[in-house]
């Protein structure tokens, strides 16, 4: 057994785990944060994407022991003080999600992209999310959602596809 101590979304988690415990299972089962999902066995789908020290990472292909001491961010940590992250807002406004299963991983990748590149082209967005599979949306609205978030983060005016609530 090995001791793993991490921060997830700013809160400390500590547990004695088997070295083989996958990070995604640490997050879901030990920390109880079930927004991070598992979609494949082969590091292909990205449904399990979280940020490890700011880096988007497939948590099904990391051992929990590998990130001991790390600072993790999951989908549950995106909203701050009741305010949705611009990426969350973009996905909502541009209908960037359908079944919602790939969404948390997709959004974490998007958050990291916009940290590095505040004004990506559509092609750069597509390239950045090419390790995250979505089976529902056909990606068009995901690209728009990320562009919406980028514009919002740059302080530009934004309008999404959706009507505002009545």
């Amino acid at each position: 057994m090995a001791q793993v101590k991490v921060n997830i979304n700013g809160a400390p988690y500590q547990a004695e785990v088997e070295p083989r415990l996958l990070l995604v299972h640490f997050i879901r089962e030990v920390a109880g944060l079930t927004g991070t999902h598992v979609g494949c066995d082969s590091t292909s789908c990205g449904a399990c994407t979280v940020l490890v020290d700011g880096v988007p990472s497939k948590s099904c292909t990391l051992l929990a022991v590998q990130v001991d001491g790390g600072d993790l961010q999951t989908v549950e940590g995106l909203e701050r003080d009741g305010q949705l992250h611009p990426v969350q807002e973009g996905f909502w406004e541009e209908h960037g999600l359908q079944c919602g299963f790939c969404t948390p991983g997709m959004m974490m990748t998007a958050v990291a992209l916009l940290e590095r590149n505040s004004n990506p082209s559509d092609d750069e967005v597509r390239r950045a999310i090419s390790g995250n599979l979505c089976r529902c949306t056909g990606y068009v609205n995901i690209v728009k959602a990320i562009q919406y978030a980028g514009a919002k983060m740059r302080g530009e005016p934004v309008t999404g596809a959706a009507e505002s609530a009545a």
Binding site: P56, T61, A128, S130, G131, N132
Partner: peptide
């Protein structure tokens, strides 16, 4: 190589 997320590790 692989995809952008894999390349981070």
């Amino acid at each position: 190589v692989a995809d952008p997320l894999v390349r981070n590790y």
